[in-house]
Write a protein that binds this DNA or RNA. Structure first.
Lengths: 236, 236
DNA sequence: GCGTTTTTTTACCATATGGTAAAACAACGA
DNA sequence: TCGTTGTTTTACCATATGGTAAAAAAACGC
């Protein structure tokens, strides 16, 4: 799977059990009475919902929830505002849909940490993937950052449901590695925070990074630095 | 100077050559013709501008620029909206004033790195101070994060003027330390980014951190982790 | 082709919001 | 105390914005 589309990958590719699939499902739910089976969304529904979410990702990630307007989203999607409200029940619905769809994808790299793999190697691979995501999907990163910055009013519930179990599990794995002496001892949760913050920094604070860095080499430099950082921290 | 008041320290404490002092000065500038000398702002002006900026810091840091409303600021400041516009020329003026006042303070810890001190010690002290600032001044951190996330539309100019020279200088210092073998070799600029991101993370992503951490020990744990992180990275 | 359903457009609305004018009021110096 | 200056309130306004109703236009099933 190429890394040039995250949020909308599966749908674009045509698979049917994925983020946008769920998204469309949830739409059906909100427009039909609960008794009839979900009629499969038409080609045109798929296309337009996709367009809207794409446009909304642009706008929300750039201006934040309140800073974004339906008109901007509509314009960017090439649809009229009422038309957008035909597909989504409101501004918040779009935002939540985006956030929900993003969650799984965002956590995927952590899920891919292999308990059977070489500890240091697994962590370094995770760091690299997270950094890659910052480069490839800065909009998603900023959407997320905006939401959490404002106190996670809309995604907060997911923290307990999806994020926490995964983090707990991963932290346990890392700490078991530490105890076995296969990693230098660290607080696994703070380690995870540091990985998130250092990698996402390059997307979320891009304006600052660009202003301070000689340019172009940004990502290569970051990659190398983070590699060194976590090698020195974690080598047993 | 204690670290329990950042942006408004001096004024609250009554000293007169500090951020808010400058803030008030800039106000005078915008309300009088340029030919007469600045009449010193009255007690009441100081007090009300202070209140407004305090309230605005609350509101802007919580909701972002566009998410914040003058009415919220007014309410929080205990003044009427038109009254607020008597002291500031508009919403943007308040925001810019806040950001400008914050800049110096935000950079202070970096300025305090002592070229004569012990390298590792100086960096660790810097990390600790930054982390402390995240704990003590989360609003300021979020205000900043919000601004940079949106592309630094209002603070961008400062990057070239204030931030870049200081970062360049500090990076040079760190790299000279590296070359002298007093620090393990690192890319100084990425090191700085990592310090910023890991420390500010605890303020900016507090909603997430709180959801994932067993609680209370948050800061002690962070402190210890970051200490370890940078010791292992930088010990020669 | 034709009736039915889905999609899109046109024309609105209510509210929120940044901002202003000018009157009322308070403080202050003479 | 009076006039002047500085401060606050009252009453507004223009625009932006999220959202709706209902007609018009496509699409679709047969």
């Amino acid at each position: 799977m190429q890394a040039d589309h995250l949020l909308f990958t599966g749908v674009i590719r045509g698979s049917d059990d994925n983020k946008l699939g769920n998204v469309v499902e949830s739409w059906s739910m909100s427009h039909h009475s609960a008794d009839d089976a979900d009629p499969k969304p038409s080609r045109i529904q798929m296309r337009n919902r996709k367009r809207i979410l794409e446009a909304a990702l642009d706008v929300f990630s750039q201006h934040g929830y309140r800073g974004a307007t339906l008109d901007q989203i509509a314009e960017s999607a090439g649809l009229s505002k009422p038309n957008i409200l035909y597909y989504f029940s409101g501004k918040e619905d779009i935002h939540v849909t985006l956030l929900n769809g993003l969650m799984d994808t965002w956590l995927a790299p952590m899920r891919e940490i292999d308990p059977e793999g070489d500890p240091l190697n697994e962590i370094l691979r995770y760091v690299r993937r997270k950094l890659e995501m910052s480069r490839e999907f800065p909009r998603e990163s900023r959407l997320f950052a905006n939401e959490v910055l404002q106190g996670a009013p809309r995604i907060g519930p997911h923290f307990g449901a999806d994020l926490k179990p995964l983090v707990d599990e991963t932290a346990q794995l890392i700490e078991s590695w530490s105890k076995q002496g296969r990693l230098a001892p660290v607080d696994a949760r703070h380690l995870i925070f540091s990985i998130w913050s250092t990698t996402q920094h390059y997307a979320d604070f891009d304006a600052q990074v660009q202003a301070l860095l000689p340019d172009d080499d940004t990502h290569a430099g970051a990659q190398e630095f983070l590699d060194t950082l976590y090698k020195r921290l974690l080598s047993p």
